[in-house]
Write a protein that binds this DNA or RNA. Structure first.
Lengths: 164, 164
DNA sequence: GTAGCGGTACTCGGATACTTCCTGTCCGAGTCGTACTGG
DNA sequence: CCAGTACGACTCGGACAGGAAGTATCCGAGTACCGCTAC
């Protein structure tokens, strides 16, 4: 069960966009260059964020991406859902209703009762989602500022530079 | 982020093994036939459970798999870890240390400070793991017995039958 | 000098290859039960 | 009748294909800026 690598890129980019403010747009190529990542693939991740309404995109010169709303309103759950999709990791295929097991193997006598395994898995996954939803981009930015106060300024300086 | 389908099979099989008791071994082919699943692939999942010490395997006639310990001692976390592996879903590749970002982009000034994103992701994942670890096979079996008391007996009857 | 216009460069967005992992299958090694043979 | 032995069948275990999803890339559509030209 591996999470897409793009999630890491997306969260980092959201942090950078948060530090740069919402008054300027940053091209995908620049966000990628900051970490020496493939620009086209970074663009793909940002497109997913745009589709999810987390960032807004503008074309043409001086275009790029910027946060669609304040960092306090963007949770990790939002970003993960944008890249990974909203479906559950555990997919209950209802095998209990197949085969010689008749209609009741591990969980139910009739089709009505929910699959106990599915319920347990969902419970765990909800705990995960709840934890992700409780942390915003602003929270992470605050943590970083606390541990290394120069980080935000360093980002602003690097992106302020016109080279590459 | 999709979980392996084998997890569902493994948990269902653990439930069945729990109902059948630990005094008899059940072949992979029979566990698979119960749900009309491919026997060889089911065998693969059971092998993983065996490597993790959740079930024990015996070869030859009358052989098969049985639970290695009481269902109360087997958690969902154990099963998921056996099939999926123990590594985290979110893989921090430390992109913050690459590229023009120098050595401190989103998280740290030096290599010492932990990646804040990684920390947040891990926190969520730990919540997930904790929830999985809190539920045992016995718990699920109890839930099923509550909702459809006939399930256990039906399983015992089907597996007791020599056909297929 | 100013307004209008065309060209150019830049950006996103989706369509297209390549790699990795999950899914599914196959065959060989080992083991137990059984039947046969000999005493 | 009983013990020993050889055979056969059954099961796990790991090695081997096929397919879906993630990863990476490229090219076209659209847009804003800039310079030029005409008034």
């Amino acid at each position: 069960m591996r999470m897409n690598e793009g999630v890491e890129w997306a969260v980092h980019s959201c942090l950078n966009l948060a530090w740069l403010g919402e008054d300027r747009a940053v091209p995908a190529a620049k966000l990628a260059a900051f970490y020496e990542l493939p620009a086209a693939y970074m663009n793909k991740q940002l497109q997913a964020l745009a589709r999810a309404g987390i960032v807004t995109s503008t074309s043409g010169p001086r275009g790029g991406f910027r946060l669609a709303r304040p960092p306090e309103k963007i949770t990790l759950m939002d970003v993960v859902a944008a890249i990974e999709g909203s479906e559950e990791a555990f997919r209950c295929t209802e095998i209990r209703h197949r085969g010689g097991s008749g209609s009741g193997s591990a969980v139910s006598g009739r089709g009505d009762t929910p699959c106990a395994i599915h319920t347990s898995m969902r419970k765990a996954e909800l705990a995960w989602r709840r934890e992700l939803a409780s942390q915003s981009i602003a929270d992470i930015a605050a943590t970083v500022d606390e541990h290394s106060p120069a980080a935000a300024e360093r980002v602003r300086r690097w992106f302020g530079d016109t080279r590459t």
